[in-house]
């Protein structure tokens, strides 16, 4: 292991240790917040995989819902244990994504964006329309929490550890995919699709692959969320939530693996801080979004480098 990999590894261990002890210093309400934050980190990281090929889909929130509904219905109506229904949520979301690949990836860019939005809305409206088994507007409630020995997963702290372990594992897998040659090819498809095709890359396959894999992971995130809340509704996965995902990724930055995660953390904490403004919160988010894209187009991840450049440049000016 070389030195940079070692510092990398050490950094991750430190973050994990901090996260592991953190909930014991928080009040109940903030423990909840922390659970959702960790789940949202998985949401943005899986979304990042989808966007690696350069296609910004608007269906990711709905795919999370597909996993959530899948796991909820499996565990509640078919008595499938959480430990099975949670990974199956990923399979369900991945399968729905696979079915959508054919229509969706006939389109690119604008058409893909609108097409994915339309497909997502159609799925979401189906949850509202088909009361059986989706429960209409009020959704499915009474989703059982996980069972393991005599651990009480209704309590936030045990559930937090469960989420932390699963999300860390998923992030590790996502990171491996991105750093592998498959990930490199996804990048290549994004930046110069014709060039990638000319060396034999079937761009359709790779777009689909990224979309399906991202959906599998976000499906798992969906299951994690609703088994904690106990209820799943169509409202949880509407375009509003999709926009939050977009904002986290854009504000954080989409050039590195960490950018989206930083975005999710910083903005979620900000959001928590603005809780008392309540109805003004979306506007604050909107303003942050606009300012971020205008003044920090490469995201928060670029901040250290930009500061360095700024000081470097002013230094050069003085010298000149």
């Amino acid at each position: 292991m070389n030195r940079s990999a070692l510092t990398h590894f050490a950094g991750i261990v430190i973050v994990l240790v901090i996260l592991a002890v953190l909930p014991h210093f928080l009040r109940y309400h903030h423990q909840d917040f922390l659970i959702f934050l960790v789940i949202n980190i998985l949401v943005v990281s899986s979304y990042r995989l989808v966007t690696l090929t350069g296609e910004w889909s608007l269906i990711h929130a709905v795919m999370m819902g597909v996993g959530a509904y899948g796991s909820a219905i499996l565990s509640k109506q078919f008595n499938v244990s959480f430990w099975l229904s949670m990974p199956l949520a990923g399979v369900v979301a991945g399968s729905v994504a696979a079915l959508l690949c054919y229509p969706l990836f006939r389109m690119t860019q604008f058409y893909f964006l609108i097409g994915s939005f339309a497909a997502g809305e159609a799925i979401r409206l189906s949850w509202i329309h088909f009361i059986k088994p989706f429960g209409g507007t009020s959704g499915v409630s009474g989703i059982p929490s996980p069972e393991l020995g005599n651990i009480d997963f209704l309590e936030p702290i045990p559930y937090f550890y469960l989420v932390l372990i699963i999300v860390t594992l998923c992030l590790f897998l996502l990171y491996r995919v991105e750093k592998s040659r498959v990930g490199l090819t996804l990048h290549a498809v994004h930046w110069k699709a014709p060039l990638a095709e000319s060396v034999g890359v079937n761009t359709w396959n790779y777009r689909s692959l990224a979309f399906i894999t991202g959906s599998v992971f976000v499906g798992i995130a969906g299951a994690l969320k609703v088994h904690y809340i106990g209820t799943v509704t169509p409202k949880q996965f509407d375009i509003g939530f999709m926009v939050f995902i977009l904002i986290w990724v854009i504000v954080g930055g989409y050039r590195t693996f960490y950018g989206a995660i930083i975005g999710a953390i910083v903005l979620s904490i900000l959001d928590e801080a603005f809780r008392e403004f309540d109805e003004l919160r979306p506007a604050i988010y909107g303003a942050i979004l606009v300012f971020a894209i205008l003044f920090l187009p490469a995201g928060l991840e670029s901040l250290p480098q930009r500061l360095r450049e700024k000081f470097g440049r002013s230094g050069a000016k003085e010298a000149g």
């Binding site: 964006l113 506007a283 988010y285 909107g286 303003a287 942050i288 979004l289």
Partner: peptide, 18 residues
């Protein structure tokens, strides 16, 4: 930058709603 324009318009959407 069509994506940037889209994102900006989403920002405006939130602000107008509020």
């Amino acid at each position: 930058d069509p994506l940037g324009g889209l994102i900006c318009s989403i920002g405006v959407l939130f602000i107008l709603q509020v």
